[in-house]
Amino acid sequence: MSHPTPDGSLSAPGPLAAVLDRVGIPRSLALGYLALGLFMIGDGVEQGYLSAMLVGNGFGQSEVALMFTIYGITAGVSAWMAGALSDVFGPKRLMLAGSIIWVLFHVPFVAFGIAGQSTSVLLLCYGLRGFGYPLFAYGFLMWVVRTVRQERLGMAVGWFWFAYIAGFSTLSPLVAMRSSR
């Protein structure tokens, strides 16, 4: 027999479904929360070591600082635009676009910017890559807001912020520490 999920869909009960229901995670969004947490772990691990690694590989401190400044500006603009773009293209497409942007600019950032010791490629690709994670993350937030019933929305948004912060601020330092050993 099917049972209603917190987000209003119907699903067969199971042990994982029961746990998700109990803690207030909409089943239809559970993988999205996991993906958000993983995305933010990656972003946090990178923030912890990238500056020192780049300086250690011959890039100047001012170049690295400029790179992070450009990234912050593009990430801020992307976060600001995410709600409107979600209305135009839909949250799932926005998440896909964010993922594609991130990968599309990460590859040349590593291959030509870092490995090729090119400051201009480093600045361009890392800066443009800054558009990726906010489109993914805030596209997912818009999906949560559009999907979850009003009486469960506060809990669902709380889980969004839990996955975001747990990935970026809590688990990423642990992952970075483990990988540096």
Rank of each mutant, 00 (worst) to 15 (best):
I165A: 11
L85E: 01
W159N: 06
W80Q: 13
G127L: 01
G139R: 09
L96I: 13
G60P: 02
Y71M: 09
G72C: 14
R129M: 12
C125K: 00
A79V: 08
F162L: 15
E63V: 09
V121Q: 04
L94C: 09
Y138L: 13
G56M: 09
L96D: 00
Y164E: 10
I165F: 11
D87H: 07
M155K: 11
M67A: 14
R149G: 12
G139C: 12
M95K: 05
P173K: 08
R93S: 12
R129Q: 15
A75P: 01
L94P: 00
G113I: 07
L54K: 05
A163Q: 04
T69A: 15
F168Q: 07
W102M: 10
L122P: 01
F89E: 06
A176K: 01
G72A: 12
M81Q: 10
Y126W: 10
R129K: 11
F112N: 05
A137G: 09
Y71R: 08
M95P: 07
N57E: 08
I73S: 12
G83W: 00
Q150S: 14
M67P: 01
G130E: 02
W80I: 11
F109T: 03
F68Q: 12
F59A: 15
P173I: 10
W143F: 11
G56Y: 02
Y164R: 06
G167H: 08
L141Y: 03
I101H: 02
G90Y: 04
G132V: 04
G127D: 07
G72F: 13
T170K: 00
C125Y: 00
G113H: 05
F136C: 06
I70S: 01
I100V: 15
A156G: 10
L174C: 08
Y71G: 02
I73W: 09
F105Q: 02
F162E: 03
G132T: 06
P91L: 03
W143S: 04
H106D: 12
A111R: 05
Y126Q: 12
G132I: 03
A84Y: 08
V103E: 09
F162Q: 12
K92N: 14
S78V: 05
R152F: 13
G154I: 13
V144A: 11
L85W: 06
F136T: 07
A166D: 01
W161M: 10
R149I: 12
V148F: 06
K92F: 10
A111I: 13
F162P: 03
V107W: 14
S120E: 13
S172G: 05
E151A: 11
S169I: 13
F59Q: 07
E151S: 11
L141V: 08
F109C: 00
V55H: 03
Y126I: 08
W102V: 05
G116T: 14
Y133S: 15
E63S: 15
S118H: 10
S120T: 12
G127T: 07
R149V: 13
V64N: 06
I114P: 00
T74Q: 07
F168T: 05
I114S: 02
V121K: 10
V64H: 00
S172P: 02
A65W: 02
